[in-house]
Simulated scan of single mutants.
Amino acid sequence: MEIGKRVHVKYLMFLSIILLLISCQSNHVSSNSTVIDIDKFNKRYLDIKTNFSLDGYIEITEDWAITNLVRKFKDSSDSEHSLFQENNKTLVYKNESEGIVVMVGLSPGIEEKFQWKNALSYSSGFYNATNEDSGITKGYSEIYPNTDFLIYNFSGKELNASIVLIADHSRDLHNTEFLPEFIKYLENIN
Rank of each mutant, 00 (worst) to 15 (best):
S77M: 01
E158W: 09
N160K: 09
D37C: 07
G105Q: 11
F84C: 03
S79H: 07
F182L: 14
I110M: 09
E158A: 10
L179Y: 11
N32E: 07
L186R: 01
N42P: 01
L12I: 13
G105P: 01
E80D: 14
D75V: 01
K5V: 11
V102A: 04
K5G: 00
S30Y: 12
L159K: 03
M103R: 07
S121Y: 08
N88A: 04
D172W: 03
H81M: 00
N131F: 05
L69T: 13
K184I: 00
A129Y: 00
S141I: 01
L19H: 04
D133P: 00
W64Y: 05
I58V: 10
K10H: 14
I3E: 15
T137I: 12
S26H: 10
D37K: 02
S141E: 04
I58T: 09
S77P: 02
A129T: 10
S134P: 03
F14L: 14
Y57D: 02
F178P: 02
E62W: 02
S134I: 06
E177M: 09
Y11D: 13
E62Y: 04
L54A: 10
E187P: 02
T176I: 13
E158R: 11
Q25H: 11
F84Y: 14
S26T: 13
G135A: 08
S134T: 08
D78K: 10
S123Y: 11
I17T: 10
R6W: 15
E112I: 03
V7M: 12
R6H: 12
L186F: 06
Y93N: 00
K113Q: 13
E2V: 13
N160C: 05
L186C: 12
N87R: 11
L21K: 07
V102G: 05
S23K: 07
D55C: 02
V102D: 02
Y140K: 07
S121F: 09
N190L: 06
A161E: 04
V102Y: 00
K74L: 10
Y122N: 09
L12Q: 15
N88M: 08
S16M: 14
S124A: 14
L69P: 11
T34M: 10
V9F: 12
D55L: 11
L106T: 00
T137R: 07
K117N: 08
E59L: 00
A167P: 06
E187L: 03
K117S: 08
K184M: 09
S26G: 05
P180I: 07
T67N: 14
N190H: 12
N68R: 12
L120M: 11
I22H: 05
F149W: 06
L12V: 10
E62D: 09
G156E: 04
L54D: 07
N175S: 13
Q85L: 09
I189P: 03
N95Y: 04
F84A: 15
K74M: 05
K49I: 03
Y57P: 01
D148Y: 00
V104C: 11
R71D: 14
K157P: 02
S33R: 12
T147W: 01
M1C: 04
L46V: 04
N160W: 03
E2L: 13
L150W: 04
D37S: 07
N42W: 08
K113L: 06
G135V: 05
K113E: 15
